[in-house]
Write a protein that binds this DNA or RNA. Structure first.
Length: 689
DNA sequence: GAGGGGATTCTTTTT
DNA sequence: GAATCCCCTC
């Protein structure tokens, strides 16, 4: 969309200015505020304007007192964007909440250790309580105290064997622990419950030992560590997760007035971007600093920017916000600078909190909204709409799907996604939650080990095929220094000429020319592939080791290995075109006219042409969207708080408001008889293309 | 037909 | 890691 040609009336310009003046009044009256604005209102713009205004008003004082403005974002991407739009300034710290909070508290190790010790004790208590009450532990409870300690003793001596076979099926697992089965006959009747109990026992032991070491001031146990790369608590190793970091911070701040003062003196202004996504503990913390600052009469202003209805993450504070940080001035912006009036009107009906948006523009280009309820072949439907909306490379079509699996399928590389999904490491290893990051992340660092290797080869090939690519992108910089251009060009040509219809062929051809006397070529291949892989066979072996033989399961090597080998073979027999589509997807360079996203991943973005494919089920919740559609324009917000209805509503709101001009929703399940609510919002329900 | 146990099947996103 | 389906036993 080209918004610059759209006209805004003088009245609306004045009204928009007034909104900003409301914020500026909060600043001069020293009142914290919350800026609520629906989708497409220009929230980030307002945030940046506010930052600039604060600098204009108080920059000099801030500098004099060595103070700063703090701007907290939810993601690194958002932090980077704000930094860029802001330009160079030393008066503003922009960072994610976790970075920021860790910077503040990391030096308070003495108190952190105390909190950590308490947490460990608390966890041990909790685990003991579940062993005493939960049904899955009832077989364990039957044992006498002596038997219980004996069990722990035996299992502790077999710890490595236990972890190795933990994921085996029940029969194999029992075979490995026949001695336990003899000594405690009933205990292994349910292997899963047994595992749960043993895990608990180990954790208690670990935590107890850690507490003891902390009390002994063991050198390895004098500091609490946080590493943004890991998302799991390793409390016994003094390492905490993202959530625990916030938990500790909140505790530390609440019990330490000195720290509250340090925070408010260091950062008299704190702006929170997308506050609805922020963990409630963060809001609690800011609220308590706010209270304390008032008590000691220091300046401390918080400005929250966000939209409760765009909370689509489970852990975000969402609509609970208002009950946590009270006494805020509310600034509301009703303008929408993104969507057509038609789409705005639908979005207004989906919202149920009373915020009604209006377009800021006097006129808007032709737009369309339609809703279909029918079973469709997606491809046919998309083809029809490609014509209808005149889709081409400059006017792309964006399709929203609920799951990543479907996005992978529609984007043309289901075989690749499914290969990983069905590989042992993910499937038997129950690492389902890693799949998305490992296979589909646009951040290459987040890809899995195997995926990274495949990506390197594909990216190398892609860059060779593109004229715009600089030599430095393809070759290690070291080469460029002592090789003359002619040799380099020859080498480039040689590599460019490597062909292959499938991944197997391509890699085979790469290695056919390897170690044939061309030292420079060899080095180049070493760099791209990996030092330890010298043939297609070795590549295959690498994949097998990482994804299939990782536990070195020695039993039935024949049958097992053959099957796994076949799967890897099949992966590499897939056409190179399919791999290219995967490569384009994770580099965000899709050349097609149709681009697929999950609903969630479109947050913050906007597209001219959007088709939303929707069905009733989302995950385990079979009636996720069907329940919402039955009550769609219902304004009874309070009853919905915390329910699936609320989260479905927010997700639909986010999805719908991504569209600027053309929007089409396709509901693929039966709408049932109660179609009135859907009609009220979307008008006619079409059942034919 | 009730309940126990095993295997299989699921979503999204961020730090 | 919970929900659900399926199979088995009593």
């Amino acid at each position: 969309m080209n918004y610059e040609s759209l006209h805004i009336s003088p009245e609306n310009i004045a009204r928009e200015k007034q909104v900003f003046e409301d914020i500026s009044k909060c600043i001069s009256n020293k009142k914290s505020w919350v800026f609520d604005a629906g989708a497409g209102a220009g929230k980030t713009y307002a945030l940046i304007q506010t930052l600039k205004l604060i600098i204009d008003l108080t920059g000099r004082d801030l500098k004099k007192h060595n103070q700063k403005i703090l701007c907290i974002t939810y993601t690194n991407v958002a932090a980077d964007e704000i930094k860029e739009r802001l330009g160079a300034t030393t008066l503003i710290d922009v960072s994610t909440i976790h970075d920021c909070v860790w910077n503040i508290i990391a030096s308070h190790q003495k108190q952190l250790i105390e909190i950590h010790r308490e947490k460990l004790l608390h966890e041990v208590d909790g685990i003991k309580r579940s062993l005493e009450t939960e049904k899955w532990a009832e077989k364990y409870r039957i044992l006498s105290g002596e038997e219980q300690s004996l069990l722990l003793e035996i299992m502790d001596s077999k710890k490595l064997i236990y972890y190795k076979h933990k994921r085996d099926n029940a029969t194999d697992f029992r075979a490995e622990f026949t001695d336990i089965n003899e000594r405690f006959p009933k205990l292994l009747s349910n292997v899963k419950n047994f595992n749960k109990v043993i895990d608990c026992l180990f954790r208690i032991k670990n935590y107890d030992e850690t507490i003891a070491k902390m009390d002994d001031s063991d050198r390895m146990f004098t500091k609490v560590k946080y590493d943004a790369r890991f998302n799991d608590d390793r409390l016994e190793k003094m390492r905490i997760s993202h959530d625990t970091l916030l938990e500790y911070t909140q505790k530390l701040v609440s019990m330490n007035d000195m720290l509250k003062q340090i925070i408010c003196d260091q950062y008299p202004f704190v702006l929170v971007d997308e506050y609805q996504d922020t963990n409630p503990l963060v809001i609690q913390m800011l609220s308590s600093v706010d209270k304390y600052a008032k008590k000691i009469a220091h300046t401390f202003l918080v400005g929250y920017y966000g939209d409760v209805k765009q909370n689509i993450y489970d852990k975000g504070v969402g609509s609970n916000f208002r009950s946590i940080h009270k006494g805020l001035e509310r600034v509301e912006k009703v303008f929408n600078r993104r969507c057509s009036p038609e789409i705005i009107s639908i979005a207004n009906k989906i919202r149920n909190d009373g915020l009604v948006q209006e377009s800021i523009y006097e006129e808007f280009p032709d737009s369309s909204v339609s809703l279909y309820n029918m079973e469709v072949d997606r491809q046919n439907f998309i083809t029809a709409y490609t014509k209808k909306w005149n889709i081409n490379n400059k006017n792309k079509l964006h399709c929203f799907e609920l799951t990543n699996e479907r996005v992978a399928e529609q984007s043309g590389f289901p075989e690749i996604y499914n290969f990983f999904k069905n590989s042992k490491w993910y499937k038997i290893g129950k690492r389902y939650d890693f799949l998305r990051d490992h296979v589909l992340s646009l951040d290459k660092n987040k890809l899995g080990v195997v995926q990274k290797l495949l990506f390197r080869i594909l990216d190398f090939r892609y860059k060779l095929g593109h004229d715009a690519t600089m030599l430095v992108d393809v070759f290690r910089e070291k080469y460029l220094k002592d090789v003359n251009i002619l040799t380099l060009r020859k080498l480039l040509e040689k590599i460019q000429n490597i062909s292959g219809e499938t991944f197997e062929e391509y890699v085979t051809n790469i290695f056919n020319a390897y170690r044939k006397g061309d030292d420079k070529y060899d080095k180049c291949i070493d760099y791209v592939v990996a030092e330890e892989i010298k043939s297609y066979q070795e590549l295959k072996q690498f994949v097998l080791n990482k994804l299939f033989y990782f536990s070195e399961n020695e039993e039935d090597p024949d049958e097992d290995n053959q099957e796994s080998e076949e799967e890897v073979d099949n992966l590499f027999k897939i056409s190179m075109n399919t791999f290219e589509l995967w490569h384009d997807f994770i580099t965000d360079t899709c050349i097609g006219e149709v681009i697929y996203h999950t609903y969630h991943s479109t947050k913050g973005r906007e597209f001219d042409n959007v088709i939303i494919f929707m069905n009733s089920r989302f995950g385990r919740r079979k009636e996720y969207f069907s329940n919402l559609l039955k009550v769609l324009p219902d304004k009874n917000e309070k009853q919905e708080v915390g329910t699936d209805l609320e989260s479905a509503r927010n997700l639909l709101y986010v999805a719908v408001t991504r569209a600027t001009k053309n929007l089409c929703i396709v509901y693929l399940d039966d709408l049932g008889e109660d179609i009135q609510p859907v009609q009220t919002v979307f008008g006619e329900i079409k059942s034919k293309l």
